[in-house]
Computed example of a mutant assay.
Amino acid sequence: MTTYLWTPPEPASLPQRGSTVRLPVHRLFFVGRNYHAHAREMGVTVDKASARPFYFTKSPVHLLPGGATLPYPPGTADFHHEMELVVVLGRGGFQVPLERAHELVHGYAAGLDMTRRDVQLRLRDKGHPWCLGKDVEGCAVCGEVTPMPGVALNRGAITLEVNGALRQRADLADLIWSVPELIADLSQFYHLQPGDVIYTGTPEGVGPVAPGDRLHGRIDGVGEVELTVGSPER
């Protein structure tokens, strides 16, 4: 039995629809600019023929369950929502061929990649890593996981409302890189493990939120995610 100087935190985990057994989370991967319209609103274009997906990560300790209240974070005046399809892996793999990548899927969830946009863009323009803009406490929000073992989900409406007003709407068919393509590509760089989680990118319509705002996201056939933005901590 290992003795620690202090009690380690509980491992990050996610609820699973129809079960009391939680899913332990290993790593959080995020895909940037995976919808053409969102890439354009961020001032770039993506040519799939000559590009590959790009990724950033967040610490699993920043995972927040859907339905929670997230205090407006410090260090930003432009806190943005990004609605995303979340893939949870149930099997591991390394250098996985594209035609078998779907076999790693355990299930899917609706999630939010909350972002200090002003910080992210300032760092981007200086050529610095995005960590302070993206790896923000509580800013990897995720609803319950719907098990779909081995399913390569490739269509379904994805929407986000803020205070009842529609902000984001697209279809999973609009993804530049599909779920199998992302899994196969990531596996060229990592030994993927059960519990690895992939946020697959956000559609157009990202924008700021303020304390008191209520967010409600939905993906057809997958589930929902909710978030309340709280007051800044003092």
Score class of each variant (00 low, 15 high):
residue 125 D to E: 06
residue 107 G to R: 04
residue 49 A to G: 13
residue 41 E to D: 06
residue 125 D to R: 02
residue 43 G to K: 01
residue 102 H to Y: 03
residue 163 N to Q: 09
residue 63 L to F: 14
residue 175 L to Y: 13
residue 41 E to A: 14
residue 40 R to A: 11
residue 92 G to A: 04
residue 45 T to R: 13
residue 156 G to C: 06
residue 85 L to P: 08
residue 170 A to E: 09
residue 59 S to W: 13
residue 162 V to A: 09
residue 73 P to F: 08
residue 198 I to F: 10
residue 232 P to E: 01
residue 233 E to Q: 14
residue 130 W to T: 01
residue 94 F to Q: 11
residue 76 T to R: 00
residue 55 Y to M: 13
residue 223 G to A: 15
residue 205 G to M: 01
residue 215 L to E: 12
residue 17 R to Y: 10
residue 12 A to M: 06
residue 54 F to M: 00
residue 80 H to I: 07
residue 33 R to I: 13
residue 100 R to L: 00
residue 156 G to Q: 15
residue 14 L to T: 11
residue 182 L to Q: 06
residue 191 H to F: 04
residue 27 R to Y: 08
residue 202 T to I: 05
residue 157 A to P: 00
residue 153 L to S: 08
residue 100 R to W: 03
residue 194 P to E: 15
residue 167 R to M: 14
residue 201 G to I: 12
residue 191 H to R: 04
residue 64 L to W: 01
residue 140 A to C: 01
residue 180 P to Q: 11
residue 2 T to R: 15
residue 63 L to Q: 15
residue 229 V to W: 00
residue 6 W to Y: 04
residue 191 H to M: 00
residue 104 L to V: 08
residue 197 V to N: 10
residue 14 L to S: 15
residue 86 V to F: 11
residue 86 V to S: 03
residue 198 I to G: 12
residue 15 P to N: 01
residue 154 N to C: 14
residue 32 G to A: 02
residue 122 R to G: 14
residue 209 V to I: 09
residue 105 V to I: 08
residue 70 L to Y: 04
residue 137 E to P: 04
residue 129 P to S: 07
residue 83 M to T: 15
residue 60 P to C: 02
residue 149 P to R: 08
residue 171 D to F: 13
residue 173 A to C: 02
residue 171 D to K: 08
residue 88 V to L: 09
residue 132 L to G: 02
residue 101 A to N: 08
residue 62 H to N: 10
residue 112 L to I: 12
residue 224 E to I: 14
residue 9 P to Q: 15
residue 202 T to E: 06
residue 143 G to A: 09
residue 149 P to L: 14
residue 229 V to C: 05
residue 72 Y to S: 07
residue 141 V to S: 03
residue 22 R to P: 12
residue 231 S to D: 11
residue 45 T to L: 00
residue 82 E to A: 05
residue 212 G to H: 03
residue 199 Y to E: 04
residue 160 L to E: 03
residue 23 L to P: 12
residue 71 P to Q: 08
residue 64 L to P: 11
residue 130 W to L: 00
residue 205 G to T: 11
residue 172 L to M: 15
residue 110 A to Y: 09
residue 227 L to P: 11
residue 102 H to I: 05
residue 185 D to Q: 00
